[in-house]
Design a protein around this nucleic acid. Structure first.
Lengths: 342, 342
DNA sequence: CTGAAAGCGCTTACAG
DNA sequence: CTGAAAGCGCTTACAG
């Protein structure tokens, strides 16, 4: 008899099926060395009792964790949610679960706290979106603790085999081409914080893209924001107050672009008639503001999925492939040719 | 010697400290029955080797899981991220981890898939934000599997001891009072889908609030949306095309309100001069659109924390308190008195 | 193809 | 206050 209220265990199944627990184990683990008749008999008992192996017991016996950690400090909810979905897409076929760990790199015990987390849990592996992915100290700590990891980053910082690369510079280059094509020449850039590699890559790509059209990016028109609405607003306010103000602004992400909308509105400057604004990320807000925002789209969910797959490794063999994503420009209504009289 | 590359175990610590593993266990678990000198000696060895107990082994021996599941189908990224943070706030002091499980109630294997998830993982407990929290079949399944749970919901569906209640009707009532105070009488409501209890509560509270001002909510001006931008747009487009169109619209959430903005814009109707719009939730988009949206704020992160605490129970004793949250109105620029000529 | 023994790293009674 | 034995639910060699 099965203990009332208690879970049925491998022993119960073994007894009920008249085999040893090892045989049950073999059935569970799809070992080929079980006679079909035996397998069926055991399967029937398993199903009849809704048996499912205890994950902690397996983990202990196999010296393996079934938990994947996602460690992140990204400020955009949409980014986080899409990334989580993507990772789960990859984990779906496996029996791994996703444990989340938001953090703040500015907090004092940020590093120690994550170290404890990693040491205690002995994860199957960890996935690091930017900007956590750029923290080499953290990655070193993971390696010290034998925790494999996949970085999502705009540059390859160690092996390409554990990086999902996003070609941020190419996305920014496309934005530059679009703006230049429209005929703009006085062009500003509100970049992200220097602590983010993506911010450098986007800046670099944007500058390159303009250069390809023979346009120089005036360093006086490059301001540093914090990837937030408020900083976008502040930087744009400064730009719009200039004597000879720019006719186009490329913002390092959508949040800052929406802040720039607000700055333009308060200054009585029309988008896109007086000023063109371009964002980056294509988060949902980009198509909910008015005018709808021209921006650069990253397939965030697919990137998460690729990261998950990289972490799992190829089930048939163990070759792991280098994965990279190229962003594309989404043209909407926030960009137009510069005003005639300018 | 400690195996190279291998993790240090309780046995290593016991040997190194010259005590039995049981004594180490007592130190780890803060048992009072250890002589201070012994405790210190053991502590020193633990720290010297950075020992941390294997969570799966503990879980197995204690017949207890250290994993909390968050199961949700809420479509708003901001809501999800805030709720996750709140739950983690509550879990911080414990050694529990948060496993996330987004799902889609419309998918065929939604229920079976979650059932498998629950059976396999034997969670410490589960947290259910709306609208998953309203699925009684799912809750029954959790109980069947001895998985405790906390619901976040706008009505108490079973015991108040495992519900974090949100007074949605009160928030909607406040919205009604605000609109009535401004002098509106032709008032519309774009409600959420009938499958969400919150949608009913908000509708009910709004109607009640208008009645308190002697205003009847015209059922012809109540449309059902899907809590999405697109449905908000569609419903508002219908309302604005009416012969005698409303001068104010209360939308069931911010997403739909922003959709309504867009509909007004396309119809050449100004917000708030020609029509007042009120949302619900105070998600970040509410203060990023123009004009900034008057809406009803829910303290989502605190609600998540309360849910986590309810799940953990009171560490000093085991009384659990009923928790509820009352939303407040946030007045911004999307509401104004009705136009003079109306 | 199948089983009895030993072990994963921890804890809970039970003695002393 | 401390320890030796048994057990949590599973798996891995090792026999047969």
């Amino acid at each position: 008899m099965i203990k009332p209220g208690g879970k049925v265990t491998i022993n119960d199944i073994a007894r009920l099926a008249g085999v040893s627990k090892k045989t049950v184990s073999r059935v569970i683990n799809d070992s080929p060395k079980v006679r079909p008749a035996t397998r069926e008999k055991v399967q029937a008992v398993i199903e009849a009792h809704g048996y499912t192996p205890h994950p902690e017991a397996r983990a202990l016996a196999l010296r393996k964790s079934y938990l994947v950690a996602m460690i992140y400090d990204n400020p955009s909810p949409q980014y986080i949610v899409s990334m989580q979905r993507g990772i789960l897409d990859a984990l779906e076929a496996s029996d791994l679960q996703l444990v989340i760990r938001p953090c703040d790199r500015n907090e004092d015990d940020y590093f120690e706290s994550i170290r404890r987390f990693i040491k205690q849990q002995r994860f199957y592996g960890a996935i690091l979106p930017p900007s956590v992915s750029e923290d080499q100290e953290l990655v070193d700590m993971l390696e010290e603790n034998n925790c494999r990891y996949v970085r999502i980053a705009s540059v390859i910082m160690d092996s390409p085999l554990n990086t999902v690369k996003t070609h941020d510079s190419e996305g920014a280059e496309k934005a530059a081409h679009h703006i230049a094509d429209l005929g703009h020449t006085r062009i500003a850039h509100i970049r992200g914080p220097l602590a983010f590699r993506s911010s450098h890559e986007r800046f670099r790509g944007f500058e390159l893209g303009l250069n390809e059209y023979g346009i120089r990016l005036d360093s006086g028109l490059v301001l540093e924001g914090g990837y937030t609405y408020e900083t976008g607003f502040d930087c744009a306010t400064q730009l719009l107050a200039m004597e000879n103000r720019p006719t186009a602004v490329f913002c390092g992400n959508d949040e800052m672009a929406v802040g720039a909308y607000q700055a333009a509105r308060q200054a009585g400057i029309r988008v896109p008639e007086d000023i063109s604004i371009v964002g980056y990320d294509d988060t949902p807000i980009a198509s909910r503001v008015w005018p709808r925002l021209t921006t650069v789209r990253m397939p965030i969910r697919e990137m998460g999925k690729a990261a998950g797959q990289l972490l799992l490794g190829d089930p048939n063999g163990n070759l792991r492939r280098y994965v990279s994503f190229t962003p594309e420009l989404v043209v909407r209504e926030s960009t137009a040719p510069p005003p005639q009289d300018s």
